[in-house]
Write a protein that binds this DNA or RNA. Structure first.
Lengths: 237, 237
DNA sequence: CGTAAAATTGATATTTCTCAATGAGAGTGG
DNA sequence: CCACTCTCATTGAGAAATATCAATTTTACG
């Protein structure tokens, strides 16, 4: 289930054609730094469902998502799962204080990441406050998203949760695929449920309900927003 | 309701006797830096219930909590409230990317903060990666706490939420008042409810239930853990 | 194709919320 | 010092939302 992952381009010259070069942590580096930086990381591929790292694992690497989608989640001892976020290209994973990951991450569909061994990466940061500042920015943005999600989990109804999720997910895809009323949903209904603090049945029923109301259409691998304004109204209050 | 807050010690020499000097962002500064740093901030006092800053306010200052407890929260348009955290001495508030606060903060009981104007503070950070690193650490720790709280909000029952809260709060008080089975709860039941994604009635009932089970005793201004192990068992899974 | 996994749908159970009333403590003014 | 009032907390009864259990249906995959 978790074979050694394929490594493409073992080292050298791959930032040049990296799709996330401008968006990720790398955006804080100049050309010379980037050249040095690219020797630190290796591209690693993960197949659908493969685990990239698990909660409580000792952190040996940081990850920059290049392609694909990952689910980030925590499990309770009895198996209940809360997805704390989805990672998309440009997202940077692995920062922690304890030396251990504080959530698990696995691939939803095929994923490529740029993997940096912790030690060398840490040393590389040392003399580069720009990079540190960039990482800090990413952390602060995530913190803001986390707080928004707390509001959703603690204070919104199932309908609001689903509507908010659809709009939020669509928004996240804008930078990757442009704004569209067709929203690709690569994750399963169970993933959505575990993200929204609902059961799979409630998510499914809510989708069906939205479709019957004529505000969305459920299509293969996603949904289409037929009436975005109305979805926004459902999400808003 | 929000008079100009009292400022004690307009400037100079107050880091010396600051209770949080070793714990807060300041812990990353050496003696010389601290001397310069202390001219940047002013101690400001807020009375019970006063708002320190509101969501969407332009960020003009950062805050270091010195004394007291604050509730940090977000409101939905219809008034529903989610408390995203409680701030205690040593906590650093105000970091954001948008230039606006992304949550509101008000005092629970009397609060003293060390307030830093954004501009000067930003300039002070410039040449001090240690301070930036420290701020980054605080952000990463908060992020980890936020994820834990998402699990609580999305996947735990009312009983588990309350039990987890009592233990977590007790833990946070350790560094301030030492470990004790008496847990001070300066926040109202409504605050607790809004933190846990419950109603005040459910929180109240759960407290009563725990007391009837003999695992806690409800005392004035807090609770006593009569059977901490049992509370942990309720919180665990 | 055939089988397994994922998604949907239905019926019922349970939890938590809502609405309403009561009780307790803190501060105020007589 | 005491009644009064206000806010906060507790308790109860019933309602509503969502979960659970169970059965199909649909889709994915070998």
């Amino acid at each position: 289930m978790k074979p050694f992952a394929v490594t493409s381009e073992p080292n050298g010259h791959f930032c040049d054609d990296c799709a996330v070069r401008g968006a990720a942590v790398c955006s804080s580096l100049d050309a010379a730094e980037l050249r040095e930086f690219e020797h630190l990381g290796r591209r690693v591929h993960f197949g659908s469902g493969e685990t990239v790292f698990s909660e409580e694992d000792i952190t040996t690497s940081f990850y920059n998502v290049l392609e694909g989608v990952m689910r980030l989640y925590k499990l309770l001892p009895d198996g209940r799962r809360q997805i704390v976020g989805f990672a998309l290209p440009g997202d940077f994973l692995g920062m922690n204080l304890s030396g251990r990951h504080n959530f698990s991450a696995d691939a939803i569909g095929a994923v490529n990441v740029c993997q940096f061994p912790k030690g060398p990466f840490g040393r590389f940061i040392e003399g580069r406050p720009q990079l540190l500042r960039r990482i800090n920015e990413l952390a602060i943005r995530e913190l803001s998203q986390a707080r928004d999600h707390m509001v959703l989990l603690g204070r919104r109804s199932a309908d609001e949760k689903v509507a908010t999720f659809l709009l939020g997910w669509r928004e996240r895809l804008v930078s990757l695929m442009g704004l569209s009323d067709m929203v690709a949903l690569p994750m399963s209904r169970q993933d959505i449920a575990d993200y929204l603090g609902l059961t799979i049945e409630t998510v499914s029923r809510t989708f069906t309900k939205l479709e019957r109301l004529g505000v969305i259409e459920i299509i293969h691998g996603g949904i289409t927003l037929l009436d975005p304004a109305r979805v926004e109204a459902m999400a808003a209050a």
